[in-house]
Design a protein around this nucleic acid. Sequence first.
DNA 1: TTGAAAGCGCTAACAG
DNA 2: CTGTTAGCGCTTTCAA
Lengths: 336, 336
Amino acid sequence: MSVTIKDVAKLANVSISTVSRVINNSKPVSLEARKRVLDAIEQLGYKPNEVARSLVTRKSNLIGVIVTDIGNSYIAEMIRGIEEIGRMYKYDIVLSSSYGNPDTEKKFAQLLMSKQVEGIILVSENDKQSVIEEIKGLKIPFVYLNRYYDSQDMPTVTINNFEASQEMTKYLVNLGHRNILYVTSNEDNKASLERFKIDGYKKAISDVDKAEEFIYSVKGFKPEDGYKMGDKVMEIVKENNITAVFCCQDELAIGFINYCYDNGIKVPEDISVSGYGDTKMASIYRPRLTTVKEPYYDIGAVAIRRIIKNLKSEEKEKDHIYLPIRIMKRESCKKI
Amino acid sequence: MSVTIKDVAKLANVSISTVSRVINNSKPVSLEARKRVLDAIEQLGYKPNEVARSLVTRKSNLIGVIVTDIGNSYIAEMIRGIEEIGRMYKYDIVLSSSYGNPDTEKKFAQLLMSKQVEGIILVSENDKQSVIEEIKGLKIPFVYLNRYYDSQDMPTVTINNFEASQEMTKYLVNLGHRNILYVTSNEDNKASLERFKIDGYKKAISDVDKAEEFIYSVKGFKPEDGYKMGDKVMEIVKENNITAVFCCQDELAIGFINYCYDNGIKVPEDISVSGYGDTKMASIYRPRLTTVKEPYYDIGAVAIRRIIKNLKSEEKEKDHIYLPIRIMKRESCKKI
DNA sequence: TTGAAAGCGCTAACAG
DNA sequence: CTGTTAGCGCTTTCAA
């Protein structure tokens, strides 16, 4: 069997309490005893059993992370932030993928609870309030991350979508574009963040003479959806002399550029296209995608820092934390 | 505090042993008692404390996964496989990112041990034997996954790189290419899997009349590296009438195609380019990348299944498991 | 079929 | 400064 605190105590000729004390630096121990203990630990290769420790301290040093799908690069990026910062505070993360199913999200939350995780970060892509309620009921620190939907009075960390969208539109305007098509998705859902983005777009447009609003709504956020919308979008583009298409997500933008590529339409020569998110793809793809940088890594990092802070201080902070965005000026949008 | 087995026992008017028995179905319990217990559990919303359970059973139902960087899409894909299959067997995964540092890998292995993980999967990108030795010394089931380096007598799951490379080369030959440049990386390292891939390439070339070997070696595996090699590669291409470039990794291929894009060289019209891996990018990028599908999801899935099998049966299986590959015939390579 | 009791490995009073 | 002891919540003999 593996070596326990008892073995160390015996070898060092002290009681297990003393060993515990030196491991945790919880109480003064004579130099001499400490040395003997340390030697014994070294000699036996002793590692405290964290499970036993957790049982008594009720601290597992585990944070549960429930995500939709780690295959999404933006989620992977968030997890990087979560993991890296968590590590700094000696927290490990246990990962579960819900693949978007709210019931699975709930089930995982319960599962994680029974593993005694100290906090939960939920990266969701749906707007089911019931999941949030369930997790809130768990009475452990909790941060909710959702790229698509808004959740009232939830601890979360996001960007200011109104400003982000406005900024991007302004940038396009500065490039000389006047007829800019904003492609939105699921904007009918009241919880959708799209309403802020649309407002930001509208605001920017309304601030400019001779600029006109054009909004087109599609279903879905995937590259395929961006591809499929191609025909219709190009129709609108032609009818209205549109020179720039601002897509509400990078994936959509890339799908649309793929459509353009396949149909002999040159980006940005024939039309400028911008995205939103700055997923990994955006900078590797050609043409490099002009987009809004939503700082996924930082979002994850701040989320876990919040949880840890909460764990330490018991005091709740304000619910929303807004992180700054940046316009990534790349090749897919050109001056006209 | 949260409800414990005692509370359930009290409410159900039985001893805690009985409660334990019904939870675990470990011993017969009278129908009547069982019902009372079940009711009590229901009523109190009791969930067993897994930490306490682990302490006595020495089963944590946790598998430790150490990866280089979850930001690599192929690694994310492996993790998906690991997580999804692990879940089926009620295992949770705890994730650590080493960012390629061998010492960190070792440290995490120890950390995971103290959390009582039942097995470890290491997704590494270096060839440090010492890490493997360390983890082997932990005496828990362990699978080693490495896309770049070969590890003798390690439990692992891979593809047959010789065959994969041979297949791809054959495919290019069938497309009509005779002068095919194979771009390798780090081939000087004895542990590199490149030697198998190079051999596969050579074999395929030598099987064809009028086909000649061209091998170019670069440093690194990233898109940037693929980009940087562009000038030199195009020089070689021109000198030798090369019509196809077979890159040893997708990332390299994409970087190279980016170079081509930026320099007005059309792929596949001017030159065919193939990759290796079939990372997520390969099918989204334009032109869609012709490549070897290395089944990352399955690799992860099989890896954890091995661990679980091992846990159950104590018997060791053979060390290497080979998964089948596929040539993904897409747009970046054309017939000539 | 059931309950009492002994731990799993550790921390944290408490007494000295 | 140190040792003894009582648990943490649960599983598992052992007797009944």
